[in-house]
């Protein structure tokens, strides 16, 4: 075998483990889900194999699913915007700090050491009727009865922001860290104010990181089901809750498969759109 042939084979050999893993753990299960979505659930809970379009017809035509999907996208969008607004200053501060970046990044990663569910449930002890905020306000005499702060859409967004903020900060930080800080000084030396140099120089250059963080936050928020269960009220369900209920509560795996593929298609389209305009390179950079 010639050197050229060996070199040509190398990528294939190196990629084989990854492709095998993706094939077995993602593509094959996805194939099963696709097949399942055309089956039917019988009255006993058993599945009826075949090619039926009933689940797809219901999922695509029923306004119930459409409305919850739109609500899910809305909650994910609000979460992403809040993450961007609160995460950017934090990332900027870390990127521009001198000497203690590693420590600040470590602090940013600290929440990941605690289970996501426990982190979500911690809000009950903060915002609950006998939680820290209400107890504090009552002790100060500012309120006579606990304020109802939990179990609404705002607390769902709050829980999601708590979960997703580090993803946003990390992505923006990577982007800001790669920008030459002297560019801002150059802008200032040419008469721009600090704010103007930020708006005209730093912000545009950091947009790819912001977009990558936004995509990650949006996709993860749109696929969550724990946060609405723990912190949401009766009508704060998200689309993943419908998938969970169809599969777990109603034992309707075929319908659950159709719904999960529907969500996958919507989020997949979003990722493709992102890739078309911004490319995946920035996302990889942020994740590495």
């Amino acid at each position: 075998m010639s050197l050229e042939e060996r070199e040509a084979r190398q990528p294939v050999l190196l990629l084989t483990p990854a492709i095998t893993a993706v094939g077995l753990l993602l593509v094959v299960p996805l194939g099963f889900i696709l097949v399942y979505s055309f089956w039917l659930r019988t009255a006993t809970g058993a599945d009826q194999a075949g090619f039926f379009l009933d689940n797809w017809r219901e999922a695509l035509s029923d306004p119930f699913y459409r409305d919850i999907l739109l609500n899910t996208l809305k909650i994910a969008a609000v979460t992403t915007i809040v993450c961007a607004l609160t995460g950017y200053p934090a990332a900027y501060f870390i990127a521009r700090s001198r000497g203690n970046k590693a420590l600040l990044l470590l602090l940013l990663m600290l929440p990941f050491w605690i289970s996501y569910i426990i982190r979500t449930m911690s809000w009950i002890n903060i915002l609950g009727a006998s939680g820290a905020v209400n107890s504090g306000l009552m002790a100060l005499g500012l309120i006579s009865e606990p304020l109802p702060m939990l179990y609404n859409e705002a607390t769902v967004v709050l829980g999601l922001v708590h979960f997703l903020l580090p993803f946003m900060v990390l992505n923006v930080f990577v982007s800001l860290d790669g920008i030459d800080a002297t560019l801002e000084d150059a802008a200032c030396s040419l008469g721009a104010t600090r704010w103007r140099s930020f708006l005209e120089v730093t912000l545009p250059l950091s947009l790819p990181g912001l977009a990558a963080g936004g995509l990650l936050c949006f996709v993860l928020a749109a696929g969550t089901y724990i946060t609405p269960i723990v912190l949401g009220g009766p009508s704060d369900a998200m689309f993943a809750n419908l998938v969970f209920e169809a599969i777990i509560t109603q034992l309707d795996w075929p319908m659950g498969s159709a719904l999960s593929l529907m969500l996958l298609a919507v989020l997949g389209a979003l990722v493709l759109l992102y890739n078309h305009f911004l490319g995946m390179a920035q996302l990889m950079k942020g994740l590495s």
Binding site: F64, S235, A237
Partner: peptide, 18 residues
Amino acid sequence: NGNEQKWSKAFSRIQKGY
């Protein structure tokens, strides 16, 4: 059990505000 399929689905919708 005879009504499980229909009712569990109906309740799921009501639960979510429908």
